[in-house]
Design a protein around this nucleic acid. Structure first.
Lengths: 178, 178
DNA sequence: GATCTCATGTAATCAGTTACATGATTTC
DNA sequence: GAAATCATGTAACTGATTACATGAGATC
């Protein structure tokens, strides 16, 4: 289960409450591993029982107490152990590809419109990634060792979006539309 | 739920038993939408109740009777309706990206080994796609209308694998390994 | 004799989504 | 006055995986 490990990575980068984690999963980390707050709370509870994370209760007035989660030594050990495991083959699920394959049985005009919309979204995501890269890693030729992971993931995101846009262009060209 | 629609597409292409569908989901269709036989049998039952598919029972000796499923008129209508819906944004889940991000907290050598293994797998998949393209679509400049969907999906698969390989190369280069 | 293919499923469990719930504080 | 932010969760449900079960015929 990679959600646990995604949480461990995020907490290793910086301790956080469940709420803050949920917001991270709406943004940076969420671009390659999404999760809702309900799920995060559930898993955090399980991880606390397992001793992978520790909680510090921070009392607040006017709102529920905040639970600040931090990775523990066993958590770091588990994270390290997990990174040494070979990554199992990812089985991707692409609704878009299913729909494309349905082309001979579907509504061609609607699909073309959808491909254009899809391309627009990929363009927006690409722009966002490029801005993130410029903001967080201004000197791309000299990335510090602690930033290497984040940088390489961002590079992967940029490549993925560029590839998706090029694919959409090819589809539109093949279907004779611009 | 796209599994239902993936099954509808597959049955629109050619009627099949649950077993045959399961094998298709191990191969061609499964490259972009995976499913096990247990899941397929379950969903097929539900789809039959909903009238999207019809069953013809074929008696056999020495093995269980075969149930040959075919798409029905309501099934075709539903498939057509679904293709006209805008595709919801796909939230990807990449264990590999999580692991990369864990680089500063993990076992660097093991991760490098894993990236190389990952690259090998993508190379093998790419080779497989290219062979499929050569076998099923020998004249790439002239694809028939019924083959357009399958061809474009295959093109997407090839692009995805090429992109993944290039990303792996970049990672290895950045980490100073070949 | 062992393993693979054909052919169907059930049961238990785990992961993930959607809906519901509360309530103060800050911003528009 | 409405909506967003902070902060926690529970409950019901759906989707997907893993394990178990059966049994004949074909191939190694």
């Amino acid at each position: 289960m990679a959600l646990e490990h995604a949480i461990l990575v995020s907490l290793a980068e910086r301790s956080a409450s469940g709420y803050e984690l949920a917001r991270r999963f709406d943004a940076s980390i969420g671009h390659f591993w999404s999760a809702t707050h309900q799920q995060i709370y559930k898993v955090l509870g399980r991880m606390e029982d397992a001793g992978l994370v520790a909680v510090e209760l921070i009392e607040q007035s006017g709102r529920p107490d905040k639970k600040l989660y931090a990775i523990t030594e066993p958590g770091r050990t588990e994270l390290r152990r997990w990174t040494a495991e070979p990554t199992p083959p990812e089985r991707l699920r692409s609704t878009f590809a299913v729909k494309l394959r349905a082309l001979p049985f579907g509504d061609r005009d609607a699909i073309v419109t959808d491909v254009r919309r899809q391309r627009d979204e990929h363009r927006a995501t690409l722009r966002y990634y490029e801005e993130s890269a410029a903001r967080f890693y201004p000197d791309a030729s000299n990335i510090g060792p602690d930033d290497l992971g984040g940088w390489l993931v961002l590079r992967g995101g940029i490549r993925t979006e560029e590839g998706a846009i090029a694919w959409c262009d090819e589809i539109l060209q093949t279907l004779g539309e611009r």
